[in-house]
């Protein structure tokens, strides 16, 4: 009986603490929006963060995209070949990348590369009283530190996703056309006939924008909320990856069902 009560107590505690964290994260989101003026007035601040989140993620994005594209080309070819429609390989690669893999894999890589860096940086700034010092200098750390990173993430993510999709398609092209020898004309024309700008490409960009907001907020919140100790920061960094990944995949399902349904 007692253990049952204990169990419910634990469940209740974990639910309320989660809701509490969600609330604080939402509050942080609004604080960021309120304090965003400076990120655009002094765009140099945001520019620097785009460099750290976007440019520094370029290599991992391009390399992974190329491999993902090549694998799609190979797997797609062997499957489609059975049905005698190997020219459709272009459509398969392009649709898979533009609609799903581009935004999703980019967001997952972004969470691992840039998200963890943001969490660790903010967490350490908090642990070493840098945020406190800034407050004492009458500078709002949300406006000066958090908001530029937020906007940098939101701007960088769609750009990275577009690069991922394009490089992935080039990877698919290399395998399908150059290595296997599918007809080049069929590869591109089939793709163009079946990939719609508004419904496939723009929707992909919208997805990556949403992922950008989610990933960056999670990374910033985990850093801002981290206990100011070495252990606290390292745990927060781990949580950034786990939470971001789950949220990205969950949001992807929701967004996809809206986009296909509507």
């Amino acid at each position: 009986m007692k253990s049952l009560i204990n169990f419910f107590e634990k469940v209740g505690f974990s639910v309320t603490s989660r809701i509490h964290r969600l609330g604080t994260a939402t509050r942080l989101f609004f604080l960021i929006l309120l304090a965003s003026g400076e990120s655009f007035k002094r765009f140099q601040l945001t520019m620097k963060e785009i460099y750290f989140t976007g440019v520094m993620s370029l290599v991992i994005i391009i390399v992974s995209a190329f491999f993902v594209g090549m694998v799609l080309g190979l797997q797609g070819y062997y499957t489609l070949q059975k049905y005698g429609s190997s020219e459709a390989i272009g459509v398969l690669v392009a649709l898979a990348l533009v609609r799903e893999l581009g935004p999703v894999v980019t967001a997952l890589l972004f969470a691992g590369r840039a998200g963890t860096a943001i969490t660790a940086e903010i967490g350490l700034m908090k642990a070493t009283e840098q945020l406190s010092a800034m407050e004492m200098m009458a500078v709002n750390p949300v406006g000066r530190i958090i908001a530029p990173r937020f906007w940098a993430g939101v701007i960088a993510m769609p750009i990275l996703a577009a690069i991922f999709s394009m490089v992935g398609i080039l990877g698919g092209y290399v395998v399908a056309v150059i290595v296997i020898g599918v007809d080049e004309g069929a590869f591109w024309s089939q793709m163009q006939a079946n990939v719609d700008f508004r419904y496939d490409i723009v929707n992909g960009v919208i997805k990556s924008l949403v992922f950008g907001v989610a990933c960056t907020i999670i990374a910033l919140f985990e850093g801002y909320d981290a206990p100011p100790t070495a252990e606290g920061v390292s745990r927060a960094t781990t949580r950034t990856v786990v939470t971001s990944s789950l949220v990205i995949l969950g949001l992807d399902f929701i967004l996809t069902s809206f986009m296909i349904g509507g």
């Binding site: 070493t128 010092a133 004492m136 009458a138």
Partner: peptide
């Protein structure tokens, strides 16, 4: 509060320099 803080300077325990 921000106006008051501009009259203050504070040295933190470990400096709290922006790394």
């Amino acid at each position: 509060i921000y106006k008051l803080r501009r009259k203050m300077g504070m040295l933190f325990q470990h400096g709290a320099l922006f790394t």
